[in-house]
Computed example of a mutant assay.
Amino acid sequence: MDNHQSGPMETGAPMDYREHEKTYEGFLAAAKWGTMSTVVLMIAMAAGFFGGAGLLGGLIVFIILNIAGVFLLR
């Protein structure tokens, strides 16, 4: 007796592809902007702590690089 199924088995509600694409685009955007912010923060911390720029210098580097990143990643 053969008890296996030959085709795909559909369970649950049908897939909402529009919502899936929307979620995927949101994830990609969050990954892109999160990565940019983390890299900018690390550069600003390095400038502030090791480059002798201090707190205000690091903050200025952080702000300038964030503005540049927004324009470059659009």
Results as ranks from 00 to 15, higher is better:
42 M>D: 10
24 Y>M: 13
37 S>W: 00
29 A>F: 08
21 E>G: 05
27 F>C: 03
50 F>S: 13
56 L>D: 04
48 G>P: 02
37 S>D: 12
21 E>C: 11
53 A>D: 10
31 A>Y: 05
34 G>E: 03
15 M>L: 11
21 E>Q: 12
38 T>V: 02
23 T>F: 05
19 E>M: 13
45 M>Q: 14
23 T>A: 13
50 F>Q: 08
53 A>M: 11
53 A>W: 13
17 Y>W: 10
41 L>V: 00
20 H>S: 15
55 L>E: 11
40 V>F: 00
29 A>M: 10
29 A>L: 08
51 G>E: 10
21 E>V: 09
22 K>A: 11
51 G>P: 13
47 A>M: 14
52 G>Y: 05
17 Y>G: 08
40 V>K: 06
45 M>W: 09
28 L>K: 15
32 K>F: 01
16 D>V: 07
44 A>S: 14
52 G>V: 03
18 R>I: 06
24 Y>F: 05
48 G>F: 09
22 K>R: 15
45 M>L: 14
39 V>R: 01
33 W>E: 03
49 F>I: 14
54 G>K: 09
43 I>N: 01
22 K>T: 09
26 G>T: 00
34 G>T: 01
42 M>V: 12
26 G>V: 08
48 G>V: 02
21 E>T: 11
53 A>N: 03
43 I>V: 13
29 A>S: 13
54 G>R: 02
38 T>R: 00
42 M>H: 03
